[in-house]
Amino acid sequence: MPADKPPTVPPEIDIPNPGKSEQFWIETDYSDKTRFWAKRFYPTDSSAGDEEIQPKATTIFVHGFVEYVDRYRNIFKLWPSKGHEILGFDQRGWGNTWRNSPKPDGNYGNTTWPQQFQDLEFVIRQTRQRLDQRWGANKVPIFLLGHSMGGGIVTAFHTRSEEWVKQHGGNGPTQEAKEMVAGVVASAPWLTLTKPPAWFIIWGASKLLALMPEIHWNVDLLGKNISRDPVVASNFENDPLSDKKVYLKAIQGPLQGGMDMVDKSHKNWPESKPYLIVHGTGDLITSHKGSQTIIERMQAKDKTLKLFDGYYHDLLNEPGQDKVVVGEYVINWLNSHL
């Protein structure tokens, strides 16, 4: 576990009325005693001693592959500045959840799609309970925002069939949890890759996993391909919380499941659930064409694809005001669905 490197600092950004933030642990009732490192950014009333005020909505953020929530700690101030709360949690096997786990050595990226759905449902329920206790039952709507791998997760969360859930031991998103979500935003979702591996590599990986379920894999992700901001690119290369050696099983879900959503399981999307995809046309990691295809094929009444010309993969960590343009577009969409 790399402990000798200092944590990276994202580029500063000037946001007026940024509200406040707090980090905390989301304790689960799991048998393995998993707990999630979390951080929320919330609006305050500057005329009343920065007292917390009821947000217009709460956005639960689901981060991407080999990353973590605190990479976004500056741009996420934009949400409180617009009267919104945003909450992110480091998923099992990633970020501070991994680093502070009982046995971090060898456990980086140790997760699967079914586990990620179970964990997201737990956070949704915990958040719903917290908001209801603080502000009143269902007074604050909950939205999901997932980036890259997280964008695939928040999409897949709403497209799991009953058959899929049964095949995975009943460990899938419940209808009750899905109904707690007012709308879904996917940022550069992992549906299809810009440079997908050949079919026989995917086939071979599945066979290999069946024989060696705990096998590791080195991923080829370069900072310069993530963002056009050189600081963000350098951070990604040198971040002690962004390792590139993960479990192969952590790749299988988004790799095969993403393609399946484009081809088939998009049919399971709830017709009344609003869905927004934001994607950069210059994305070198996930393909904006996959996003275009799933939006075209979906039967959702309320579906939107917003393409940002020339933007790279890490939309909320692009240079200068570019990230703000994306953030404000998402927040305006949230406002239109309150």
Rank of each mutant, 00 (worst) to 15 (best):
G109Q: 04
S101C: 06
R99S: 08
T58A: 15
P55H: 14
I75G: 08
F41G: 04
E85M: 15
N100W: 08
Y72K: 05
Y30M: 12
P102T: 01
P104G: 03
E51G: 14
Q91M: 10
L78S: 07
K77D: 05
W79E: 05
F76A: 10
V69F: 06
V69C: 08
W98D: 01
I86Q: 06
A48W: 02
Q54S: 10
P55S: 13
F61H: 15
G88F: 09
Q54W: 06
V69S: 06
G64D: 02
F65C: 06
R40V: 10
L87W: 07
T34S: 15
V66Q: 02
G83Y: 03
K82P: 01
E51I: 14
F65Y: 13
S31W: 12
W94A: 07
D32Q: 10
T97A: 04
K77M: 09
L78H: 04
F41T: 03
D105E: 08
T97F: 01
N96H: 11
A48H: 07
E51M: 13
N110L: 06
T59E: 12
R99A: 12
P55L: 13
R40M: 11
G83N: 02
S46N: 03
K56V: 13
L78Q: 12
F41I: 03
E67H: 01
D50Y: 08
Q54D: 04
P43W: 02
P43R: 03
K77E: 08
G64P: 05
W98N: 02
D50E: 12
T44D: 06
W79P: 07
S31N: 12
V69R: 03
T44G: 05
Y68D: 00
I86H: 04
